[in-house]
Design a binder for these strands. Structure first.
Lengths: 149, 149
DNA sequence: GAATAATACTTGCAAAATGCAAATAATAAA
DNA sequence: TTTATTATTTGCATTTTGCAAGTATTATTC
């Protein structure tokens, strides 16, 4: 059997580079981590600090500071949840939404570039495969989810 | 069209967690970065510092120090190339090889676990797709390779 | 219903990782 | 031989990290 780890390693590295090429948007210099935080806040519905930190697998104390800097940059808003004031609900500011949208566009442009090297059939196969893979990894909980702390 | 970035983001994150679950081997606590360095030294044939640093997209000064710590742990050996003594050729020590092998086994075990959720046909499709993807990303040089410094 | 525990998040601090600029050492070019 | 170029290392200042301990709020217990 061929070396499965090898092809995954290569893929992850490529995709990591793609991610790194991100993200200077309108004066703001957005780090990779910050772009991921913006992405997840945008995606999840009124998430708490813990939710996003867990999704990204970031230590909560580190995450707290990362969010603080995003708040300072006026990209993220933190509002206490009325029914439980311990919890901070995260949301994007107008500027945060704009930045997230620009980054999303840039990423999709790069991905389209990648897919341009394939024909329609290949493209569909690849997309289906990755979905399959994601589903499998989600099932294999002990290996591919947030490590406990 | 569906959101391509989304499925890639999810996949990368899952695989990142899988990687993170690595690597305490025989007393040594191997960080993710260190495990990647071991992997690449093992894979490439008598690589120089620059080669590995470029492969991993790590700044050469940072990489120099990472290698220093691996040398101190007695996992990596650095030998000047006879015909050009500026160049340090990297190799794994016996212990380094052992550790790399153990990590490789752990990773493959986890990947097999993931693939266990699929039937033979799906498995083959996924592997083929990732290879296709890797080839495409290698072609799309401006997006998915080492950023210049 | 006051005392205790648990939860969500923040801060202190010390260690580690980062990367630019400059240094060193070796080879190549002029 | 002098001057560039290349490969790697070190100085240093900044940033990132995560544990331990702290604050604030809610839940539980007696």
């Amino acid at each position: 059997m061929e070396n499965i780890r090898e092809i995954f390693q290569v893929m992850t590295r490529h995709f990591g580079f793609l991610n790194k090429n991100c993200c200077t948007v309108g004066g703001h210099d957005i780090s990779l981590i910050h772009s991921h935080i913006l992405y997840e806040i945008d995606k999840q519905h009124n998430p708490s600090m813990q939710q996003i930190a867990a999704t990204l697998g970031t230590d909560i104390t580190t995450f707290s500071r990362q969010v603080q800097s995003l708040v300072k940059m006026n990209l993220v808003k933190k509002s206490p949840l009325p029914e439980d004031k311990r919890i901070s609900v995260l949301s994007l500011t107008a500027e945060g939404k704009f930045i997230a949208a620009v980054i999303d566009e840039q990423m999709n442009t790069m991905l389209n570039e990648v897919f341009a090297n394939m024909n329609e059939f290949e493209r569909e196969t690849v997309v289906r495969s990755i979905k399959l893979l994601n589903a499998s990894m989600a099932k294999t909980s002990y290996c591919c989810t947030t490590p406990m702390r």
